[in-house]
Design a binder for these strands. Structure first.
Length: 198
DNA sequence: GCAGTGATCATA
DNA sequence: ATGATCACTGCC
């Protein structure tokens, strides 16, 4: 029997690396829409969740950014090189997952606020079992938590920009449109070209 | 609408 | 040592 028309073979995806993250946080936040957050479970199995909501924290000049008050034990990872995780505990209960962006010494990062069917940054980390142990570590297969490219750039008309959530203390910075959202339902169509995993 | 929750950091 | 703060969530 001749070959069946083959389903596109799942592209062997390489994790997004430092060069992707070594750009302004708002650019990275925008471009992460449609990317995959991949986590290796305790059983060794990989789970993929498509990123649909992010927020950019631009650096020391951004009053909503933890780095704006200088380096502390908590936010040290933000000052490190791009492509590492910055994870911290919020309200004593919720782990917040960020990927560090930009040059070493610039405290910038992107908060991952929504992936797959998980809405809200605290829910994302809870669902994926992410905690402090990832803080400061490179986003890589070795660590067991990384990001991979999606099926293509999400069209601008599908990207909604709003002010960031929960940063009312930041004055004018609270109003900057640095939150990026795309409807996950639209994403699944786009990403089927790049092959999702159930 | 607001209580829960506890690490973190500035102040002392 | 103490107290304010907090990039949130869940239940009232």
């Amino acid at each position: 029997m001749p070959d069946m028309p083959r389903q596109a073979h799942p592209r062997r995806l390489h994790p997004l690396a430092a060069d992707f993250f070594d750009r302004p946080a708002d650019t990275v936040a925008r471009d992460l829409l449609g990317a995959w957050l991949v986590v290796r479970g305790a059983d060794g199995r990989l789970r993929r969740h498509v990123v649909f909501e992010t927020e950019a924290y631009l650096g020391g000049h951004d009053l909503a950014c933890h780095g704006s008050k200088g380096m502390t034990a908590r936010n040290a990872a933000m000052f490190g090189p791009a492509g590492r995780w910055y994870v911290y505990l919020c309200y004593g209960m919720h782990w917040m997952l960020n990927i560090v962006t930009g040059a070493e010494g610039l405290p910038a990062a992107v908060l991952i606020r929504g992936v797959g069917e998980h809405v809200g940054p605290g829910r994302v980390t809870k669902a994926l079992g992410i905690n402090r142990s990832f803080d400061g570590r490179p986003a890589s297969r070795r660590v067991g938590l990384w990001l991979e490219p999606g099926g293509g750039r999400v069209p601008p008309r599908l990207v909604e920009r709003t002010p960031r959530i929960g940063v009312g203390y930041a004055g004018a910075w609270a109003e900057k449109p640095l939150r990026f959202v795309v409807d996950p339902a639209r994403l699944s169509t786009i990403n089927n070209k790049g092959r999702p995993q159930p």
